[in-house]
Design a protein around this nucleic acid. Structure first.
Length: 406
DNA sequence: GTACACGTCCAT
DNA sequence: ATGGACGTGTAC
């Protein structure tokens, strides 16, 4: 951010300079100790110009760097990104609209920028054109953006740094277990590699950012494979993104917008599954999610295709997501605060074997914790999570279900 | 009863 | 803020 800020700042500086090129006085005494003193009134402008240009260039560079590293610079456009995401999620059938709206949302926002340029909007709008928000609607062609993953992905997913950490250290170890190798090592690699904006489609990032749930072991033949084809393994591959995964919304936007990608029919069908074809999705979950996949649905009761109705296994769980089980405390009217369960569909959940090297594995007896690499993404988040009714609608269900179709 | 794993507390 | 230890709920 600082880089961006400076970039903006410089830009204004430069523009102002250009406007009054001959003006000996500068309003940036900080940058040039002598400039403000008018000692070399004749050369000062020239020197300043040069230095300013240098700074200008470097700033631009840093700005780009920052943006790219920020995962499509979404963080710069949280509002629009969210909006777009929501729209996409809300009206998945018409992603173009959502996308467009998302883009629109961006525009005014940038224009609203205050004089302080806190948010660097001007700069973002100008320099960031190739990526950000536009990102939401534009480069969907290839990657699938997860509605929730988009905003704040980088930050929120950072908790992962932990696992990433481990993966790198234990690296092969983590994946070693199932030969899943977890791409721990490839992670960083992906980041640096995808820096250039020149890549027609910044799919690497988007992909990665949205993805996350994919452990190499599972990634085979899945939608996200697109990325693999690129030969890049993104940092988030370890299952970073919250509920990441190549989600439906993004995919749809992409396929519809770009006209490429998956057959519309398939997409529609997939989305339908999230709501109507629940059974399909759930079965998929069951297949790979493990025995608990079904019961886990209690977490997503709000928006997910919880197969509770069809799964007797989930004893005390109800469609409302509220525990009616006689067991737990719900002594009076207070909603029981049941233990959350694994979502069963995220990357970690789908992982079947323990790494055997993480602290949890090593201290299994005393730690009572599940392998770090198997720790459900959902459980890593705060329990409350703000209800997440709108914030991240179908983080797992819809998107995850979607995934199974590719 | 046992094993597993989530939630919480506490140390760093 | 992060990670470890422990209590305890849940499933078998």
């Amino acid at each position: 951010m600082s880089g961006m800020t400076s970039g903006v700042c410089v830009e204004s500086d430069l523009s102002s300079m250009l406007q009054r090129s001959s003006a000996p006085s500068h309003h940036h005494p900080n940058h040039h100790g002598y400039s403000g003193q008018g000692q070399v009134s004749g050369l000062a402008p020239m020197l300043d110009y040069t230095t300013e240009m240098d700074r200008y260039r470097s700033s631009i560079a840093s700005f780009y760097k920052t943006n790219v590293n920020m995962n499509m610079n979404v963080t710069n456009f949280p509002q629009s990104a969210k909006l777009a995401a929501r729209l996409a999620a809300a009206a998945p059938i018409f992603p173009p609209t959502a996308a467009r709206l998302g883009a629109m949302a961006t525009t005014p926002w940038g224009c609203h920028d205050n004089m302080n340029m806190n948010m660097n909007h001007p700069a973002a709008m100008f320099w960031g054109r190739p990526k950000p928000v536009a990102a939401t609607p534009t480069h969907h062609p290839h990657h699938h953006h997860h509605p929730s993953a988009t905003p704040g992905h980088m930050t929120s997913s950072h908790p992962h740094s932990t696992s990433m950490h481990q993966s790198s250290s234990s690296g092969s170890g983590g994946g070693g277990g199932g030969g899943s190798s977890d791409g721990g090592g490839a992670e960083k690699h992906g980041h640096t590699a995808s820096l250039p904006v020149s890549q027609g489609t910044a799919h690497h990032h988007a992909m990665a950012s949205s993805n996350g749930n994919f452990l190499p072991g599972y990634s085979g033949g899945t939608d996200c494979g697109v990325m693999n084809k690129q030969g890049h393994t993104h940092a988030d591959m370890m299952g970073l993104s919250e509920g990441g995964s190549c989600n439906g919304g993004g995919v749809m936007g992409g396929s519809f917008l770009g006209g490429l990608g998956l057959p519309p029919g398939v997409i529609v069908m997939a989305m339908g599954s999230a709501g109507g074809g629940i059974s399909d999705a759930s079965s998929a979950f069951q297949m790979t999610g493990g025995q608990r996949a079904l019961t886990d649905c209690q977490q997503h009761a709000n928006s997910s295709p919880c197969p509770s109705s069809s799964s007797p296994s989930s004893s005390g769980v109800t469609a409302a997501g509220v525990s009616l089980s006689s067991s737990s405390s719900s002594s009076s009217g207070t909603v029981a605060k049941r233990k959350r369960k694994r979502c069963g569909v995220c990357g970690p959940c789908r992982r079947l074997i323990n790494c055997g090297v993480c602290s949890s594995c090593r201290n299994r007896k005393t730690g009572h914790q599940i392998c770090k690499f198997r720790k459900c993404e959902e459980l890593k988040k705060k329990p409350g999570g703000g209800g997440g009714v709108l914030e991240r609608p179908p983080s797992v269900p819809a998107s995850e279900a979607f995934r199974w179709f590719f």
